[in-house]
Each structure stands twice: as structure tokens, then as C-alpha cells.
Design a protein around this nucleic acid. Structure first.
Lengths: 231, 231
DNA sequence: CGTAATTATTAAGAAATTGTTAATTTATTA
DNA sequence: TAATAAATTAACAATTTCTTAATAATTACG
């Protein structure tokens, strides 16, 4: 873990603690501030890699802080707003915030957004791309390439391949694939997966009848073969 | 099926029954409670592997129960909330719940989340791989390899070998093997096992007539020989 | 040695799983 | 909103695996 620094600014101590808890769990160092003045000071002296900034602040408000920060640096900012009116969101974005989250929010979601932004920061792209044999799956570009030839995958096909390619060789049951590619709330049948696998194979297998990449494990599910180019 | 235990806590009997129905269908044993006091008692005495906990409870509320449980164990908790305000979710997560579901929810989705959490529990999957002599059985990959040569096992063969390899040297009766490899609900005959053992031997024994790995214990059952490479 | 009990082997039919196509529903885009 | 693309379902075919039943071989033990 790189230990990126995140500055969290909110006048509600409980919110700050909650966000801090989750970000710490993700391996980030966290600075905290409860008002605009302190926020500006820490933003300048602490060199955070990302700032989570509430709009409603005592003293200098969040919008002003955001404006001030934007004038002097490109640090990514996630705006926090208690109000639901879209005008607030627009204002925040207008000021150059990278993302906005409406209160009340789930700390998991917040942590995910922080990860997402820091991931696309120059330097640490993280596992934005996975290679396996001649297969390249790029999550940031939402693009899969096989032997230099781009596959034209649909969303579900891409997600399926994404799940498989993250753990090549491991067998995934249809239930697992549904959970991970279609979501917990999918109410349909197992066999839907079969059709998606079929379509995937048509797009990436040289000979779909004899799959080289996506193997069927009879009675269990599917897996991505680990391709040793030399063998 | 391991028959993991799940405690479902909700004051609405209909909700409890619905969740119970779906969890039973997945092979889980289900304990139920309708108030906080009972929940705590069952959580302590019933040793559930997971708890589904409603926030709104008469008497001791769900949040308090969650807090109390967290103080004394790491049992995974899924919080249930009827209110849509995310503040509830936050509180739940803050207390260490592993997941939350907002009412009204789909019982299928609930069951899926329960499966997902129990699946990634440390004890649940056991080791992903067991080695014994030149034999490697990898459960995640659903693959068995002998002296570097992959065996092409069917599900039943794989499960049988899996049972044997977990306790090399121990004799398993046919009844035991049926239970563990074919399931409790198998209605067939003992002798089916013989055929599977035969097929297994054909795939892994250098000389199936003189089994080196899977030994017959006359009048008792089968066992996996402990292989000392030097002998 | 011979008999009864147990296990090994074989092969065929039954059952379960997967592959495939096409029609239908749902979502997206112009 | 119409046109297009995608996801899902349903039905059937193809395949694999499981189970059974019948027979042969082996073991235990008087």
C-alpha cells in the first residue's frame, strides 16, 4: 500500500470519524479538519493526495475553500453536501470538484469513490489492467484486447470476463458469476450465464467449439484457462 | 452441505419466515428471534455463523444488539433497515455490520448476500489446496494433479478424492463416502461408490490392479494410502 | 479346499449438465 | 418515439456423467 494522504473536512465529528475509519481500512493516511480555515491550512501544509470536503462549514464555507484550493492546485476534491438540490451539486462541480456525494452517504461508497479517483491518478493506476496470455482487460478503458485485436464486448460480457480474468484458473459457479457480474439483485436463471459465455466465446475463441480460454468445468461452472504461450 | 447456522432477527414474523424459507433452501439451518433479548441469547447459545439483524426491534433495538455482539465476537452481521435514510446504514456499518440491506428487499438477494459472506469466511472453504505425496488436489481450481500430470476427474470422482485426501490413512465406509461426496439425500446403493473408486483408480493408479494410492479395506471401505516417497 | 461374503469389472440405460438457436423482453440511442 | 442493441428466457440437441445390474474375481474363514 502506498499510503496516500486524504484530507477529510466536515464539522460533524461523527462523519469525519466514520470516513476516516473506512479510509484507514483501505490503507490511506487521513488528515482531518472541522472548519474552512483549518482545511486550507492542512491542504497547503499536509500535501494531501485527495480532499473530501463538506459544503456546509462554519466560518469559511466549503465552496469558498474549494474555489481557493482550485486556484492553487489540482488536488482532486470530493464535495460533500447535505442538501439534495441539484443546484448544489452543480455548484460543486462547477468549481472543479472531481466528484460529489450527497449526505447521508454510505462510507463504503465514499471509500470506493476515493479509491476510484486515486487509482486514476498518474503514478498509481493499480490493477486497471490485467494481462493473461494474449488477453488484456483494461478496466479503466472498459476494453478487452486479444492478440492485439480489440474484442467488442457488451457490458455483461466485459464484466464476466473481468471476474474470470482476476483469478485465472479458479472455477466460478454460475451463482458466483451472477453475483459478481450481474449483481445480487438479479432475479433470473443460472442459464443466462451460459448464453453470455457462449457469446463471449464467439468473440474471443479462435475455435468456439474447442474453447482455449474459457473452459467449462462440468457440474461446477466456468474458468479462465491459464495460457502458457510456450506450451 | 456444511449446514451453517444463520440467526434471523426481525419482529415481523412474515419477514422472518420468508428469509428462513430461502436460507433453508440453500441448506442453512436457521434460528429465529423476534426481539433483541432473544436475539442476544440465541447469538450466544446457538453459535450462529452469521446473523441477519433488523434495526427496528421492540425492547432492545438492533443497533444495541449489534454493538453488544461486536464486543464479544466477530460473527458476520447483515443489518436490515426499513428506513431509507442512510444515517441508519451508517450507524449499522459504523458498528461493524458486514453488509446492509434496505427493506423492502428480495429474499433471493438476501440469500445471495448470505452465501457471499459465508463463502469468504476463513473456515468455510478450508485450504484451497491439499498435497499428499505426489498428489495435489486444488479445490478452487477444481483440479487434481498427480506427479505433475493433471487427472481429468468428474465431479463425483473429484469429491471422493477430496474426502480421502483430507485425512490420508483414515478408512471411510461407503456410507460416509456417499454422505460426503454424493450428499445426504442420495437414495441409491452403496455399490455405486465402487464404480467411482474404480474409475478414479483407472485415472490415478499407475497399475489399477495393484492400487498404490486408493486402498481397499476389506469389509470396511476405502482409504488413501499415506505415501512416503522413499518407501 | 470350498463356501459365503465382499469387491472388481463391464457395459448399457437413465439422468443431469451444457451448447445452441431463436424468440421475447428490456434498455439504449438517435 | 422509433430504431437499434443487449439481455433474458425458453426450447431442444448434444454431451457427459451417474447409476444400475449382471458377472467375474478376490478374500475370509470354517
Amino acid at each position: 500500500m502506498t499510503g496516500k494522504k486524504v484530507l477529510v473536512v466536515d464539522d460533524d465529528a461523527k462523519t469525519v470519524e466514520l470516513v476516516k475509519l473506512y479510509l484507514n481500512r483501505d490503507g490511506y493516511r487521513v488528515l482531518t479538519a472541522s472548519d474552512g480555515i483549518e482545511a486550507l491550512r492542512l491542504a497547503r501544509e499536509g500535501h494531501p493526495d485527495l480532499i473530501v470536503l463538506d459544503i456546509m462549514l462554519p466560518g469559511v464555507d466549503g465552496l469558498t475553500v474549494c474555489r481557493a484550493l482550485r486556484a492553487e492546485s489540482d488536488v482532486p476534491i470530493i464535495m460533500l453536501t447535505a442538501r439534495t438540490t441539484d443546484q448544489d451539486k452543480l455548484d460543486g462541480l462547477d468549481l472543479g470538484a472531481d466528484d460529489y456525494v450527497t449526505k447521508p452517504f454510505s462510507p463504503r461508497e465514499m471509500a470506493a469513490r476515493v479509491r476510484a479517483i486515486l487509482r486514476r491518478l498518474p503514478g498509481e493506476r493499480g490493477p486497471d489492467e490485467i494481462r493473461c496470455g494474449g488477453l488484456i482487460v483494461n478496466f479503466a478503458r472498459h476494453e478487452a484486447v486479444l492478440q492485439g485485436r480489440p474484442l467488442n464486448l457488451t457490458i455483461v460480457e466485459f464484466k464476466l470476463l473481468g471476474v474470470l480474468v482476476r483469478e485465472p484458473g479458479r472455477v466460478f459457479s454460475r451463482a458466483e458469476l451472477i453475483e459478481k457480474a450481474l449483481g445480487y439483485d438479479f432475479e433470473g436463471f443460472d442459464r443466462t450465464i451460459d448464453v453470455h459465455i457462449l457469446n463471449l466465446r464467439r468473440k474471443l475463441e479462435p475455435d468456439p467449439k474447442n474453447p482455449r480460454y474459457i473452459k467449462t468445468v462440468y457440474g461446477v461452472g466456468y474458468k479462465l484457462a491459464e495460457v502458457n504461450s510456450g506450451t
